[in-house]
Amino acid sequence: MNSKTLQKILAHLVPGIASTLVSAGEFKATIEIPRLNVAEYHRPYVAAWIETPDREVTANLALWYDLEMRDREGETWLKDLRQWWRKSGRSLDLPIDGLSRPTQPAGIHEVSVDMTGEPLSELAEGDYFLVVEAAREVGGRELLRLPFNWSKGKAVDVTMAGERELGTVSLKIENN
């Protein structure tokens, strides 16, 4: 049983306990990497960011890639995260501190962002998208855009299902 299912079950049984799983003032994205039955499998490169309705990046949240390869060779494939590379990656100094992680295996992964620190503390109220892009070597690419509203006192719980390279992606904001 994965943690998400556990959380759902708990939410039904004991609402109080479930809410404590999401600590006070938390911004939490969950990204599922599907298990794929392919001849040659490489873990996907994944980027997650927040963008405005006119598609400008306001904050990078996560970047998973082969960051420990010799001669920074893993950066060669960052361009395959096409939209992220174009909108943000190509003008950044890599690796991005605090956001860069090695590629992750199939399963559900959490990206928790501190709401009291940058960039969220600086984020103006309004409509945004959580964007998650995944690209796999010798495989496909997929991008999901989850709409959310960022306002004081407003909770967010959005979920979207990927079709190929991403499983379920969700965003939960509590105690904003």
Partner: peptide, 8 residues
């Protein structure tokens, strides 16, 4: 036409 990483 688009490259990331050093010395490509």
């Amino acid at each position: 036409s688009i490259f990331s990483g050093k010395d490509q």
